[in-house]
């Protein structure tokens, strides 16, 4: 395995570069995935049947908390990658850990949010609006959940193997994923919640 030391470790091998490029392309596909969900959401937004509308059910407090948690976690994963580049494994793991804890907190609030929606009569089967709302949020939430498991796996690997070409590559790709989820959330926040509340 040839390692190119003129590059950051995560870009150190040809395979690493391909992994990162491949992941960027995957994120392109993810943009289409969420784009389709948003397009469907805008189409079905007002088709509430006999159920409640967004304005009826959205609560600003949990949304603000979720936004704060996720934005902060995007910042901490950035710090983790920065620490990784400096070769500071312990700092990196700390920030990585904080990121996952924030992610878990986000997820908990989101689960509360879902219970709230079902409680106020906007379940999955209520209307086209409630279905697309929960599906869009749920797809994002499922991504976060997957990210938590994935991130945990990476932390364990770094603990076991240290910062190698492979673990740095995985961490860097994870950070791309996490930032992406943050961007998606910003769209959800603006175009689903704020638009719905207005």
């Amino acid at each position: 395995m040839k390692i190119d030391h003129s590059q950051p470790l995560e870009y150190g091998t040809e395979q690493n570069k391909m992994n990162i490029l491949g992941f960027w392309i995957f994120l392109g596909a993810e943009i289409m995935l969420f784009g389709t969900l948003f397009a469907s959401y805008f189409t079905l937004e007002n088709r509430i049947g006999s159920g409640p509308s967004g304005a009826d059910i959205f609560e600003i407090t949990p949304i603000i908390i979720e936004t704060f948690l996720l934005l902060t976690s995007s910042f901490t994963i950035g710090l983790a990658i920065h620490a990784m580049r400096l070769g500071r494994q312990k700092a990196m793991l700390t920030f990585f850990g904080i990121t996952l804890v924030l992610g878990l907190a986000f997820l908990s609030v989101e689960i509360y949010e879902f219970f709230h929606y079902v409680h106020v009569g906007a379940g999955l089967q209520t209307s086209a609006f409630s279905a697309i709302l929960l599906t869009t949020l749920g797809t994002h939430g499922a991504h976060v959940t997957f990210g938590l498991l994935w991130g945990l796996g990476i932390i364990l690997q770094i603990k076991k193997r240290g910062l190698t070409v492979e673990t740095t590559n995985k961490s860097f790709i994870f950070s791309l994923y996490w930032h992406f989820l943050d961007v998606v959330w910003i769209f959800i926040f603006s175009f689903i919640y704020l638009k719905g509340l207005m």
Binding site: S40, T43, R47, G49, G51, Q125, S127, A128
Partner: peptide, 21 residues
Amino acid sequence: AMGTMDRLFGTHFFSIDNGGM
């Protein structure tokens, strides 16, 4: 995924009633 949910979980994405399109 939406089609699957309509068929398996009773959602109303594409159904005739409850706002489906």
